[in-house]
Write a protein that binds this DNA or RNA. Sequence first.
DNA 1: ATAAAAACTTTACGCGCGTTAAAAAGTTAA
DNA 2: TTAACTTTTTAACGCGCGTAAAGTTTTTAT
Lengths: 341, 341
Amino acid sequence: MTKIKNMEEFAALSGISRPTVSKYFHDPDSVRPTTRARIEEALERFDYRPNIYAVNQNRKLTKNIGIVVPYLADPFFAEIARYLEQSCIAAGYRPSLFSSHGEQKLENEILDGLQSLKPAGVLLAPLGRTSDRSTIEKFCANVPTILFDSNLDGLGAAFVGSDNFSFVSQTVEYMTRTGEPPSFFEMRTPANPNANKRRKAYVDVMERLGFEPHIIKVDGTGWAFEEIGHRGALKVLQERGLKTDSVLCSNDRLAIGFLAACFEQGIRVGRKEDCSLRVASNDDHPFAKFTCPSLTTAAHDYDNVAGRSVETLFELIESGGKFSTRTETLFPARLVLRDSA
Amino acid sequence: MTKIKNMEEFAALSGISRPTVSKYFHDPDSVRPTTRARIEEALERFDYRPNIYAVNQNRKLTKNIGIVVPYLADPFFAEIARYLEQSCIAAGYRPSLFSSHGEQKLENEILDGLQSLKPAGVLLAPLGRTSDRSTIEKFCANVPTILFDSNLDGLGAAFVGSDNFSFVSQTVEYMTRTGEPPSFFEMRTPANPNANKRRKAYVDVMERLGFEPHIIKVDGTGWAFEEIGHRGALKVLQERGLKTDSVLCSNDRLAIGFLAACFEQGIRVGRKEDCSLRVASNDDHPFAKFTCPSLTTAAHDYDNVAGRSVETLFELIESGGKFSTRTETLFPARLVLRDSA
DNA sequence: ATAAAAACTTTACGCGCGTTAAAAAGTTAA
DNA sequence: TTAACTTTTTAACGCGCGTAAAGTTTTTAT
């Protein structure tokens, strides 16, 4: 099989002129069925594909879409990223996936590098509190961007995420209805803005129900939430710092650590007779089903968050990269009852 | 601040000729310190960066590196990918991360798309048994490729991975030394070639030690290993199919499911007095520390596998994309003793 | 069959930058 | 100061493809 160097050569071999071939690659339906057939026939014989760099150089609007998540080693983001990627591909775009790995510097570098990719649009889940606001602001001014998961006030053309109040109110109400109102277990200085909204929601809901909120704050920074939850739980359990027999963790990864600590300390968790503690959480992490006991949690509406994010981005791209107003779309949680509470 | 359109314009503003500026961007040390200073001064005032598409179009060798993993939602691969990405960046390359999401079709599409990126090299962890050998073969013929994690005989310029025999022999010997020899718990038709090597190693080691191997095969396909392990374990436990009081799981994700099943069935796992079963595994998955009980496992030498992979790729790139012989580098496991065995 | 419309071919320029050759300018060493 | 280098400038071409204008062929409609 001959090696084809460029479109010129391929056009000659297929017996069609180069501009028409170019038109075909831009949109196969834009040429006459007979010529399309001839091109595709040649395509099978010769295995040619346009040079992506030459193509994108001349298009002011590429088919690239950037997907940026704060921490890809977190299966939660890996799952969302998977959905986003596949939606982009289905819509004919080329997604590029990036992880900030929890570091501001890397997030900035990614956004920097993304600009030279001239993406048609970007789906960005920022680090949150540790994001460099000014860098993101500049980036959003140059590239059509949808924020998801973590909201940064006013940045990006729109935000799509989960309704943290819905998460916490459902778990708190369930635990209260079926037993004692829970304490709230969280990191002292969470990077993710959702964590702050969850704490506020917890306080709100507790007060509305006429209970006094108890918040347990554990030390630790970074993204090793299981480790942080584990250490923090051991400390609390040993100091007998729990004022209630039920605990609501800010997120599932902390809860995984919490449950591991309980197990080590011989504390039985669940709603059965012989259990002394109930633990619930938020997110419905992919592994929440396999904790011991399995984790009762408020589940993200993964499909809708991801689906609406890409829909919104496509609308944004078609609107020329600007919306008249910035919208914020929040999806409610779905309570998943398992064995831990 | 003025918007700069191209290098011509930037060169004019900085007072340096375009070819020299071009030279600078290729290698800042290749120009005289004084001119370098003038360029960098202008760079601070004007925020210009070369158009990546125009640059790569003319370079036969880009600075792109493709990283392909079979399933990114598996924290094991997410961790390796993180290391690989960061190593590439440190070496001045632009990594692009892709996940096959467990699907042959997607793996093929990724490799296809990767070719038009004209990468300097690719780090590929193939799906394994479900990979399309001929597609990968063609790809490797066109692009300098290092295989890692899963070996496919003869494909790629080199392979870097873990020594499965070392994994299994350490766990089996440890369990045998401290109690009963283990049964082996695995999927009936594992996609990953490592799984097959581990089974063989198990049989070998058991026979060498004078024990009869017991293999428990559970049904299920896909990458939801926890689910498969969980279901399979429930079945085995209910049918009392365990012939030993110790089990070695083929990998940690199966073990996570296995432990969850034991917990549900009230079976105490560990090496303490009141425990009736010991469970060990292979991989040292990031979550293995937080299972209940924490998981005794043979740990991958993450750093070395990832580090050697990129090193080898860089050597390959510098050698012009071809090695005279294909090498296979295997790193031994490190036994991590925790509570489950 | 014929006019009108649609699709294609030819020709040519432009995108932003790599790269080269020859000329000019700057630097180093004696 | 001068010869020998080294670096920069000038000028020009090429990469592979998008795209536009003008002319030609094919299709569609009457």
